[in-house]
Write a protein that binds this DNA or RNA. Structure first.
Length: 592
RNA sequence: UGGCGGAUAGUUCAAUUGGCAGAACGCCUGACUUUGGAUCAGGAGGUUCCAGGUUCGAGCCCUGGUCCGCCAGCCA
């Protein structure tokens, strides 16, 4: 039973539920399809879907696609995939979608014309294909939005402005200095209607005119100084094609999209706080017949050692600093998924950090702990040697081998056991041997004893070196009575090593990922690329126990004493490729 | 020298709404162990941003201040 999250937004929702203010709680997750979703979005997804889940509501997935020159279908598809992955098995029953191609219905509420586009009921089951369903698109409301804009013009609350972009800026004033009214502010309704129609018709070039709300050029809130509602863009749109030559701005489209979908709680990040008066102004100015949505703001998630800015992430992709949006070093949801992090771990982290209005940087250790904790419970234990050194058991017969029983997951008896082959010739981890170790080194040393996991206690008799002095082989003798169940099995030896039998070993490409940045706040110095970690990826060939030949992409593995791994999508039936998701905690590394 | 928002342990958050300031993560110590993991036990760590006020009693209420964030895109 997981603890129920509680925060100031949920308190508000709970209050609304208690007083029966809405027939159903309805949130939305509204990304712009101009990049891939990242860990910051994961928090927003968990918040919005979490509220829908806890209060019996629905959360619409909506593309906030009002700027055609930045948006692409590739991003739409990745967003749908990432959201479904993150909420799968948790809140997928709360995912609000609509029929493919559906547009708002024209309805009559108390004699007033109204537009409504509810999600399909019941919510979609988590099937592999969305079938005849799709996410919502703000661009599906362009017709309705346009009608609302015309209504504002007719009410004398919006006007066509001929100021150039530069002049618009100049007229706006500054935070501590009021703006000046546009010379075009007091055009007649007829002229405004005519000009707006011609803007829509594509008669004027980009930037020639805008439709602006008529509010207050002296407002201390800059977003109330006659904000632009529509701009001319002679650009095709990924979803509406070449139908439109004018496109609505975020502020105009967002509140009305919320309204059209019947959203009750419109939850966004802190930087939109100053936009809330405009959000309310637009809705209140239109004389709408249904309850209005309300906007609530929270502080976004910024984990240390990560960058969460779409613009900067796109830079890493375009400049090939990483291999793509789903590079396992990326803080994107697709990168995190490919790295091997289970959705449950990401969710636990995103929910666990809480929801406040305080700008903060979350210690990446909290994220890493959530991953280890989740993986500890589900990962299958395997023996694999990353940086091998040869070891010979001199009193173990050449050619002999035996199958030793190994536990798959000590945390989960249901996971069962497997057989691991043992022989005279083994690989052990190079760093598990030191010729003259410092104190507290519990591993193999000349003359010292260690246990080989699931096998024998061995003693190192001889260190074989090549002419350059590098250790190339360790010659050891085993206490052949010390196997599990044997007479000396319970002898206490300080260290236990993992190992792989040389003749049975399977090669695997292993990609050792580390943090992408070396600084806790990569962008603090103003240039995040100066803080790139040159060792964020190392590719090696590891020696694995043979059962790993059957590794599955859907399962998680712990190479004992080392780290958690997941099969990469580059793996093929004949070629194993593992991504290191995260290392185990290593207290020896700290002692050293 | 505008408006809006914020400030509690190293970090992220709680504190039954005025009643002995807690948790998680991190850190340290110990126990256990066929993973130096996991688990278990313990510990350190606080001027609740500051100053004043109200009150038997203030993290919470009042006044004044400090510091931080956001806002001057025809981006979202």
């Amino acid at each position: 039973m997981e603890p129920q999250p509680s925060d100031f937004i949920r308190d508000i929702v709970a209050k609304h539920v208690a007083e029966n203010r809405y027939s159903q709680i309805h949130t939305r997750f509204p990304p712009e399809p101009n990049g891939y979703l990242h860990i910051g979005h994961a928090k927003s997804i968990c918040l919005n879907f979490g509220i829908a889940r806890e209060f019996g509501g629905v959360c619409n997935l909506r593309m906030d696609d009002t700027n055609p020159i930045k948006e692409e279908v590739e991003y739409v598809e990745s967003i749908v995939e990432d959201v479904r992955w993150l909420i799968g098995g948790w809140a997928d029953g709360r995912l609000g979608l609509k029929a493919r191609g559906a547009a708002p219905e024209n309805i009559d509420v108390d004699g007033k014309e109204d537009f409504l586009l509810p999600p399909v009921e019941p919510a979609v089951p988590p099937t592999a294909s969305l079938g005849n369903l799709e996410p919502f698109y703000a661009s599906d409301y362009f017709d309705q939005l346009h009608q609302y804009a015309v209504r504002l013009v007719k009410k004398g609350l919006a006007y066509v402005c001929d100021l150039s972009p530069e002049d618009t800026d100049a007229y706006r004033g500054a935070p501590d200095r009021p703006g000046r009214q546009s010379p075009w502010r007091n055009r007649s309704v007829e002229e405004n209607l005519d000009l707006f129609a011609r803007m829509r018709g594509g008669e004027f070039p980009d930037g020639a005119r805008t439709l602006r709300a008529k509010i207050d050029m002296a407002s201390p809130n800059i977003w109330l100084r006659d904000p632009v509602l529509y701009r001319i863009r002679h650009a095709d749109h990924h979803h509406t094609g070449n139908k439109w030559r004018v496109y609505p701005m975020y502020d105009f489209a967002h509140c009305l999209s919320d309204y059209i979908e019947g959203i009750t709680h419109s939850i966004c990040t802190l930087e939109f706080e100053v936009h809330r008066p405009l959000y309310d102004w637009i809705l209140e100015s239109l004389d709408l017949p249904r309850p209005l949505p309300r906007q609530y703001e929270f502080a976004k998630l910024i984990p240390s050692y990560m960058i969460v800015s779409k613009r900067k992430l796109i830079e890493l992709v375009n400049e090939k600093v990483v291999t793509g949006w789903d590079d396992p070093r990326m803080p994107t949801i697709s990168g995190i998924r490919r790295r091997g992090v289970p959705a449950g771990a990401l969710r636990r982290f995103a929910i666990g950090v809480g929801v406040t209005k305080y700008n903060s940087v979350t210690d990446i250790a909290v994220y890493e702990h959530a991953i280890r904790d989740e993986l500890n419970g589900i990962a299958l234990r395997r023996l694999a040697v990353l940086r091998p050194i040869k070891l010979v058991i001199t009193n173990y017969p050449e050619g002999k081998s035996e199958e030793l029983e190994a536990i798959n997951n000590p945390e989960d008896p249901q996971a069962g056991a497997r057989k691991v082959p043992f022989s005279r010739h083994l690989f052990i981890e190079r760093e598990d041997f030191m010729e003259s170790p410092p104190p507290k080194f519990f591993r193999l040393r000349p003359g010292g004893e260690v246990r080989l996991k699931y096998a024998y206690i061995i003693r190192c008799d001889e260190v074989v070196k090549d002419p350059s002095g590098e250790v190339v082989e360790l010659r050891c003798t085993a206490d052949l009575d010390s196997k599990t169940g044997g007479p000396t099995a319970n002898r206490k030896v300080k260290g236990t090593l993992h190992w792989v039998s040389v003749p049975h070993a399977v090669d695997a490409e292993v990609r050792l990922y580390d943090r992408l940045f070396t600084a806790a706040e990569p962008d603090a110095c103003g240039d995040f690329k100066k803080n790139l970690n040159p060792h964020s990826l190392e590719i090696i060939t590891a020696k694995c126990e043979p059962s790993l030949k059957e590794a599955q992409a859907g399962l998680r593995y712990q190479f004992e004493r080392l780290a958690y791994f997941a099969l990469d999508r580059d793996a093929t039936p004949g070629r194993l490729v593992f991504n290191r998701t995260i290392t185990l905690k290593d207290t020896w590394a700290k002692i050293r």
